[in-house]
């Protein structure tokens, strides 16, 4: 029941934020993480087209979660197109709530330019606190 990492992907598919919270997953070079995030963005775009007849008015939601051996990922799409991706251990409960909490502390900072990398120390510290309580 741990959260390994958090990615924030902007609506163009660029990785604007990524943090690791455990050492379980092997650390990857930043370029690889960027490629993975871009790939995930592409898969998400494709999967959002897969539904044969989406209910009228419903947002085009794509990939919501994926699982691999020993770990999984959960994707949360905001109305503005920003995606939050949590990499977590299998069988993690309450991920939806957690992603909403992360979304809550995201943004609202006048010194941040939308779609650009997030360099807010405060966002970072507050996430650390949140993840520390989850991983405890």
């Amino acid at each position: 029941m741990t959260v390994h990492a958090l990615w924030v992907i902007n609506k163009a598919g660029g990785l604007v934020f990524s943090r690791s919270y455990t050492d379980t997953l092997p650390p990857l070079p930043l370029n690889t993480v960027l490629i993975l995030a871009g790939t995930l963005h592409g898969i998400h775009a494709i999967t959002s087209r897969l539904a044969p007849a989406p209910p009228p008015g419903a947002p085009q939601a794509g990939l919501e979660s994926f699982e691999a051996e020993g770990w999984g990922g959960k994707v949360f799409l905001t109305p503005t197109g920003t995606k939050f991706v949590l990499l977590h251990s299998i069988g993690h409960a309450g991920l939806d709530d957690l992603l909403k909490r992360v979304y809550e502390i995201f943004m609202k900072n006048p010194f941040h330019t939308p779609e650009m990398p997030i360099n807010s120390a405060q966002f970072d510290t507050r996430l650390q606190t949140l993840m520390a309580t989850v991983n405890a």
Partner: peptide, 14 residues
């Protein structure tokens, strides 16, 4: 509480 002041404006307090 959601405002994070960038380093080059450290004098600022909103």
């Amino acid at each position: 509480q959601n405002i994070s002041i960038p380093k080059d404006m450290s004098q600022l307090s909103c």
